[in-house]
């Protein structure tokens, strides 16, 4: 079913916090799908789930080093035709200067968040027979923009999806 624009959109909804274990990524995805099913088409819901799972896998494997001792929080914000998922973790900040980018356009993230993709990304799809390396590419395909920030021991990734885009 296509999303209905007549539904009141909540400003924000906290969905779930889980230990940073790959087994728990499924729980994050299921919580997001339950929350977004009333406002997204089946096709859009699949793309959001694919992108969210890839982002959460990256958080578990890289920021949290694959160990379950950290926590991951998922929140969802609905504004007009935009869905923004926020992943927060208390894992290791990434190396480099990821937190020196521009602020996200929809104002749902704090100033200074790095733009990981903004819909103009033209990175090449990994080779068809590659056994890894598709995760970030898929995140870029599934979301309109992705922003990252790391401050005060918390990493944050904003995944923005424009409904009907």
């Amino acid at each position: 079913m296509p999303p209905s624009d007549d539904r009141p959109a909540p400003e924000a909804a906290f969905l779930l916090a889980v230990a940073s274990d790959l087994e728990n990524v499924r729980l994050l995805a299921e919580a997001a799908c339950r929350a977004l099913a009333p406002v997204l088409s089946d096709e859009d819901l699949i793309k959001v789930e694919i992108g969210l799972v890839e982002a959460a896998n990256n958080v578990v494997l890289h920021a949290c080093r694959g160990r379950g001792e950290h926590s991951i929080r998922l929140s969802c914000l609905l504004r007009d035709r935009t869905v923004t998922l926020l992943l927060e973790d208390d894992g290791v900040p990434p190396d480099g200067d990821l937190n020196r980018g521009g602020a996200p356009a929809d104002g749902t993230a704090i100033d200074g968040a790095a733009v990981l993709c903004d819909g103009t990304d033209d990175a090449a799809l990994p080779d068809g027979m590659a056994e890894c390396g598709r995760g970030l590419w898929l995140i870029r395909q599934c979301f309109s923009s992705v922003h990252f920030d790391s401050q005060d021991g918390i990493n944050r990734v904003w995944l923005r999806f424009d409904r009907g885009a």
Binding site: A29, E49, V53, E54, E131, C132, R134, G135, L138
Partner: peptide, 14 residues
């Protein structure tokens, strides 16, 4: 549901 890790494992098998 299939994620990129599952897809990578499938490619590895193939």
């Amino acid at each position: 549901f299939l994620d990129s890790s599952g897809l990578g494992a499938l490619v590895s098998v193939v």
